[in-house]
Nucleic acid binder design. Structure first.
Lengths: 165, 165
DNA sequence: ATGATTTACATAGCTTACTATGTAAATCGA
DNA sequence: TCGATTTACATAGTAAGCTATGTAAATCAT
C-alpha cells in the first residue's frame, strides 16, 4: 500500500513517531498520562526538583512547549511548583505523590512499547537503529539556525527607535 | 548532554520527527508551505484529483486530520475541490496552478532535508535505516486497536434506547 | 551603583495530530 | 423497495509542538 513514501526518511520517521505516541497513550490514558509527560516523569522520578528550563532541555522541547505541558500536569495534579530560593524568576518543579505512584507503570509502559516496536528487529539491529537515529538527530540539530540573544528593547526614545532614520 | 533518553527508540524517533518538520518548514515557509502538505503534494503532483479518504490513506493520517489540512490548503489557495460525479458524499481534490508551480521546489526541499539527515550515514546504512523504520512502523501499526464499524444509531424509541433497562 | 543586557518564564497565536461524534449519501438485506 | 447499516465527510474538543514576543529578575559593564 505505501510505496514511494517508504523511501523518505522524514516521512517514515514522522509516521513512526505518531504510532509510538498512540501506542504509549493507549497504555497510559486510563491513568491520565500521555507521551509528553514521559520526559518529565523520568527527569523527576527520583523525587528531584528541577526548573522548567532544565526540564525543557531534558525533553529537547522549546520552553513554551514545556510550559504548556507543565501547566496541564499541574492542572491534573501530577506536579507541584515551589519557589526557587536561588532565583526569583524560577520555580522548582517536582512530581506529586500521585505521580510518583505512577512512575513504575510509566516505565513498564515505555519498556513495553519500545520492545514491541523493535520486536521484529534482531538484537544487533536494535542497537544499530538507535545509533542511526542518534546520527540523524545530530545532523538535523546542526541544521537548525543559531538562536542569538534577543535584542534588548531600549527605552523608547523617538530619535533612537530601531530602524528609524 | 542527553544520556538515558538516547536509549529509548520512542523518544529518539519523536525527537527526529520534530527536527525533520522544523527543517522542512524552514525551507518551505517562504512559499507558505509546511510539512503536512507534503503527502498531499506528492499524491497530486501529476495533476490528479483524489478524494479526501484517498489522501488520508496516502498520508497515513486520520480523516479529520486530513480534513483540517485540506481546509488550510484551500484557504491558502493550494488546492481546489470539485464534486465527485461518482459519489455525492465526496469531493475530488486537486492542486491549483499556484501549487503545481511549487511542486519542484517541494521535491527539492524534501530531497535536501532527507540527504542532510542521512549525511553522516554510510550509503548502506541509509537503506538499513529505512528498512528498520519500516519494520518499526509495521510492528506499531499492528498494535493499534481494531476500528469496528460505528454502531448505527437506531430510531430513538424509548424502550429500545441502548443500555436502557 | 546604576543603566543596559541577558535570562527565565508567561502568553498569544498558529499548525498538526488525535478521539468522539453528527449528518447525509450510498449500499445492503430481507 | 425500503429500512438498516455503512461510508465519507464535517465538526467539536483537546494535546503537543512551534515561533514571536512581553515582563520581571538577575547579571554585566562601566
Amino acid at each position: 500500500m505505501p510505496l514511494e513514501r517508504t523511501l523518505s526518511a522524514g516521512y517514515m520517521t514522522n509516521w513512526a513517531a505518531r504510532l509510538f505516541a498512540v501506542a504509549i497513550e493507549r497504555r497510559l490514558k486510563a491513568r491520565g498520562l500521555s507521551s509528553a509527560h514521559l520526559p518529565v516523569f523520568f527527569a523527576l522520578a527520583d523525587g528531584a526538583a528541577r526548573t522548567q528550563k532544565d526540564l525543557a532541555a531534558a525533553a529537547a522541547v522549546e520552553q513554551p512547549t514545556m510550559a504548556a505541558t507543565l501547566a496541564r500536569m499541574e492542572r491534573d495534579g501530577l506536579i507541584r511548583r515551589a519557589p526557587d530560593p536561588a532565583d526569583g524568576r524560577s520555580s522548582l518543579v517536582s512530581l506529586t505523590e500521585t505521580a510518583l505512584a505512577d512512575v513504575d507503570a510509566v516505565r513498564r509502559a515505555t519498556d513495553e512499547v519500545n520492545a514491541l516496536a523493535l520486536a521484529d528487529l534482531a538484537p544487533s539491529e536494535r542497537d544499530i537503529f538507535l545509533s542511526l537515529l542518534e546520527k540523524v538527530v545530530t545532523a538535523l540539530a546542526a541544521d537548525a539556525p543559531e538562536k542569538p540573544p534577543r535584542a534588548a528593547r531600549r527605552k523608547a526614545t523617538a530619535s533612537t527607535a530601531d530602524g528609524s532614520p
